[in-house]
Each structure stands twice: as C-alpha cells, then as structure tokens.
Design a binder for these strands. Structure first.
Lengths: 344, 344
DNA sequence: CTGAAAGCGCTTACAG
DNA sequence: CTGAAAGCGCTTACAG
C-alpha cells in the first residue's frame, strides 16, 4: 500500500522541465543537454521513479521487455543461459520475462492469444525449435525471434557444436587404458518438444572412438534421465560389465557428478580406477575436480540477446547462425592424483 | 507480419455502436442490451479482435493477468497446480503469467522493479513462502497475494495436510507383514527457498508407525532427490537391509515409480514381495497400479485462484487458510494380485 | 536543446 | 441502455 507510483509528470515538475524532456532522457535521446539530463535523473532517483512499461508500450510501441521461452527444467544450464541473456539485456535497459514451457497446448495459447505477458518486443527460444509446431514453420508473431541452443534456417540461431564436443571427449578418453563407457541422457518424455544435443554428443563420441580404433560395444552405453542418481546407477551397471580401470564419458555434468559420487562410495579411486569426463563445464565441476567438455553457456546467451537487440533495432538481413565450440577442461577426475580427495 | 491488430474503434464501427459500448461488453457490464451485445461480439469475432492488455491496464488499472510464482522444477505437481489455477482464471477471462523462480536475486528484482511482466493484478505463490525474504514478512506489492502449497498467517493460503498424509501412509503400511521402509525426498539445495512438505509427510508417517507399535529404525530411511532413479537406488539399499517381503513408503509418486521399476527389474513381485505406496496421486499412478496418498492438486490450485479473484474484487477480510485432506488410494502395488503385471 | 500537443487503445463517469 | 468526452502514463513529430 505504498503511495501511488510517481509519473513522468511529477518528475518533470521536480526537475523543472517539460514532460517531453523526461521522456527523452528515458529513451536516451542524444538531444538532451548533459546538465538537464542530470537534473532529470536526479529527480527520478529522488522520486523513486520507474517508467510504466504498459504506457510505453501503448505510446511508443515498445515495452522494453523480451520473452525467453525455455523448457521447464531446472538445470544449471538454463540458469547460466538466462544469466548470459540478462546481462546484455539489462545493459540496454530491457527486462526479460521467462516462459517455462509446460506443455505444447500452453505454448499455442501463449502465441496465438495476445496475453499481456506475451506482448513483448522480441522472443528468445531456448533448446526447443518450436517453429515446427506452427504452419509455415514460423512462429505466429511479428516480433523478432532468436533461437539459442537450437538451430533453424528461418531464424537467427546460436548453438554449440555438440558433435565436436563428443569428438573431443572420445579422442581424449581413447588415450587412456581400460574399457570406455558412456552415459547418454534421455530425451524428455514429451516427444512434442525434442532436442538433439545429447544424441549429437554421443555421435561425435562414437566417431572419435572409431577413428582411434577403440571398441565401443552397445552394452557400454547406459541411458538415463538427467539426474545425479542416474549417474550412480550407470556406474554400477558399468562395473557389472568390466572391472577397473574404467573410463566414463557422461553426457552431462550432473550425471557425471553421480558417477563420481558412486565411485567414491564404492571406494574406487577417481582419476585412476574410474576416470570420469562430464559435459557442460558448469561451475561446480571445478570444485569437485571434474574434467569436462565446457560450453560457454553464458556467452551463448549473451550472443543471442545481442542478435535479438539488433533485430529489434531494425536489422533485417538474412538469418544468422552463430556456432560456438566446446573446450576440454582436464581436472582430477581423469588424472591420477593421490592428493585430490573428492568431497561431495 | 500480419496486418495490424484491430482496435476497439474498428469493432465499434463494424457493430455500428460507440466505442464505449464495445468496452462495456468487454467488461461484462450488465447494462448492455443482449441484442447489442451479440452484435458487438459478432464484430469482434469477425475482426479477430482481442483487447490490448496494456491499454486496459493503463486506462482501467487492471490488466486481467495474474502472476504465478513457482519453483523452477518441472514436476507433475506443478503442471496439475497450474492447470487448476488456470481453469478458474480463464473462466473469468483472466490470463496468467508464470514466473519460475530461478534464484532469490531474480525474485527480488522482479518484485522491486516494475517489470512489465510483474505489473499484474494479483499474485499466487506456490510452495515457497517467499514473504520471509522481505522486511515485515510482506511482499513488496500492493496487489493481492495468495499462497498455495504453503502457509502464512499474513496471506490467504491453500495447503494440504501433509502430516495427515504421512499418518495415513503409516497406518496403512503397518497392517502388512514385513519390515517397513521409507524414502524421503530431499529439500532443494538452495536453502533460501525451502518448503517442508516432505518433512511433514515423514513426521506423520513416523507417528503412525509408533502408534501402531511398528519399529522404524533410522537405517530404514533413505533420502534422495526427487527422481525416479532415486527410487531405484532406494530399493537396492533397502534390499541390503532386509529380504522380502518389504513395505516401502515413498514420499513422492515419482520416486515410488523408481521403486516399482527396480523391483520389476530384480524380478520381485510388486504387491507381495515389495509393497510400494507413493504420495501425490498423480495421473500416471493409475496406469501403473501404484497405491498412493492422493492430494487434490487441481482443486487446490482452483481454490487459490478463487481466493485471489475475491481479493481482486475487493474482499478485504482477514487472511483465510484453506486446508485440504489427502486420500489413500489402494492399488495393485500394495495388493497381491498375480494378474497385474507392471509395465513401465 | 526543449515545450506543448496529439495520439497510443482502452475505461469510466456523465449526460441523455 | 448508449454516446461523447476525459483521462490513464507515456512517445514522438512539430515548432521554436
């Protein structure tokens, strides 16, 4: 029940200028004398003024809000991605609205209705190529759209070369003695939204092993959902197939963490009896000494946001595809190093 | 790039009425002749008109949008909850905007800024009692707030009696021969947002076993994150402690499903050698024949939405607390029944 | 560089 | 029951 929010009018009064001028500093018009601008900013500060996005939208056609549609899965990956996106957006004074995609039906409704929450200035789609669900493979919106962690010839896309990531993993593990195993992360049950990153990683991995002349029988592959517990089950399964030393490539850091955890629990020396290589390069991998194929998630998010800003500013060229490359980071989990205890 | 959205003016023109009348049918004013109303509705239909929520917000102070803040975890529970909320909101022509809570910092920013996405007419908070993060234990908003799956004396709340649910589970399992085990679901790593439902379920369970004179040693409890794989690990752990028949109470259906899965895999007869009781009553439990303590999630969501609507319509009484009771549903997983194979 | 005015798409008294 | 008008908080030519 705080007092009514101040408007541009009160700011103008306090700064001793017209309301047009306040609007101009709000919109970074260069035709405002630095002195005036400072006075206005001060007034805004003192009044605790924030612009009303509804009014901005109504008056100027822009609401300074961007929508991010993302899978409804709480992973470190999306946390990082959103962080990257938000970083560049905030700089340009844009807000973002997150849209977890609970179901296809919901998405449809979002896009086809003119829900307030959806009347934003631009869209970023993460991981899912949603366009396939709409006729003409185009989203029913006239706002700019950018995909991240996905590819589509009709829209700007920012993606990681997951195949290459798998290859790096394969080449690396092929150098160690002992059999090689892999954990694949299952696609989500809702087949309507699929992404292929995990399949691509595995394909690259297979190719590299083949090129290195290392065998990779089908029973060396374990599939599970994205969970730490899945990694634990995987290692148990592998230990039924072969005895240490074992080399394990986990398609995601979270799963790799489970492998690590179970190895410790079973009293196996990580980095020697069980070598583990993850994928993603999440911050926690450093703490636990997990080797990983790192992807610059934040940078990818930031790039996506930049592409979108350009579009919102009028750029109308053909769709751009920005490819990022993963990077192998070697840590204790693939290195024998007696003095590196794993602490969960 | 579809042609510009039609406005209220075009609708008025086509219907041959003033724009005030169009607005009136939009807002369900009773002072519109049925005949006129029909004409206007027809015109809207033909034009594909949808009102601009920004303009409504600006002009009338209401945007007909409600925000739902929910944990960023993709579970059946939240899918059902949102469905329940949405059901009653749509009926009243309200839209909803979902806000997955990625982090506490984000929440703060949401609430304290006047992000477009947050300028809605009311708030529903799911599971987390976020108020504790703000001074005065009140959210920094002057809009009505309702909690669901959580309790707070300062706001309307809708919650399940989880303790009772645990008791029902304990009383029920106490009737069977064989040792009793339980899987507890771990709280989330981010301690800033905690909820206590799983602890409450376990407390009720313990109490019931005690009352029934059934032992429940500490080693009969297994804690895991909310994942199917966690249930599988749990059953393996239990089988190290005792041999069948075993009775297992899983604090969540998803985990119970993992127990079921692992039992099948190990060739144990579900319902006889391993009895499993879940919690939540999710739709899939019926398909797999899983006994469960059902909670009326959709109904809880609907109730929360109703409470909020009442507040938005001006109701200003003291906070209300609506308590729901769970219900035991008995199925094959706790019933010996040779002809009920479990198919994953 | 800056004011005053028109306009964005609606709602809501105010008259009739 | 229904028009015509004022107003919501902003942006943006248009003048100066």
């Amino acid at each position: 029940m705080s007092k009514k929010k101040p408007t541009i009018l009160e700011v103008a009064a306090r700064a001793g200028v017209g309301l047009g001028t306040v609007s101009r500093v709000l919109n970074n018009h260069k035709s405002v004398r630095p002195e005036t601008r400072a006075r206005v900013l001060k007034a805004m500060e003192e009044l605790g003024y924030t612009p009303n996005p509804h009014a901005r939208r109504i008056a100027g056609g822009r609401s300074y809000t961007v929508s991010v549609l993302l899978p409804f899965v709480a992973t470190e990956f999306y946390r990082r991605l959103v962080e990257g996106i938000e970083g560049v957006l905030l700089e340009k004074r844009y807000d973002l609205a997150l849209f977890p995609i609970l179901s296809q039906a919901r998405l449809r409704r979002y896009l086809e209705s003119s829900t307030l929450a959806f009347l934003t200035d631009g869209l970023i789609l993460a991981s899912y190529d949603l366009s396939e669900h709409f006729e003409g493979s185009r989203l029913p919106t006239d706002r700019p759209v950018v995909l991240v962690d996905a590819k589509n010839p009709r829209y700007d896309s920012v993606y990681l070369d997951n195949f290459l990531g798998g290859q790096l993993a394969g080449e690396y593990l092929a150098r160690f003695p002992g059999p090689i195993f892999a954990v694949k992360v299952e696609e989500e049950p809702d087949r309507a939204f699929h992404h292929t990153v995990f399949a691509e990683r595995l394909a690259g991995f297979r190719e590299a092993l083949k090129a290195a002349g290392r065998p990779f029988p089908e029973e060396h592959l374990y599939t599970t959902r994205l969970s730490q517990e899945g990694g634990r089950l995987a290692l148990r399964y592998f230990l039924e197939k072969a005895s240490p030393p074992l080399n394990v490539f986990a398609g995601a850091d979270q799963v790799a963490l489970g492998v690590l955890e179970e190895a410790e629990r079973l009293g196996l020396t990580v980095g020697k009896e069980v070598r583990v290589l993850g994928f993603d390069g999440h911050p926690f991998t450093e703490e636990v000494g997990l080797s990983t194929i790192a992807q610059p998630v934040e940078a990818m998010g930031a790039r996506a946001a930049q592409l979108l800003l350009e579009r919102m500013q009028g750029y109308a060229g053909p769709p751009r595809a920005v490819r990022f490359e993963p990077l192998l980071i070697e840590r204790a989990s693939t290195r024998t190093s007696p003095a590196v205890p794993y602490l969960p």
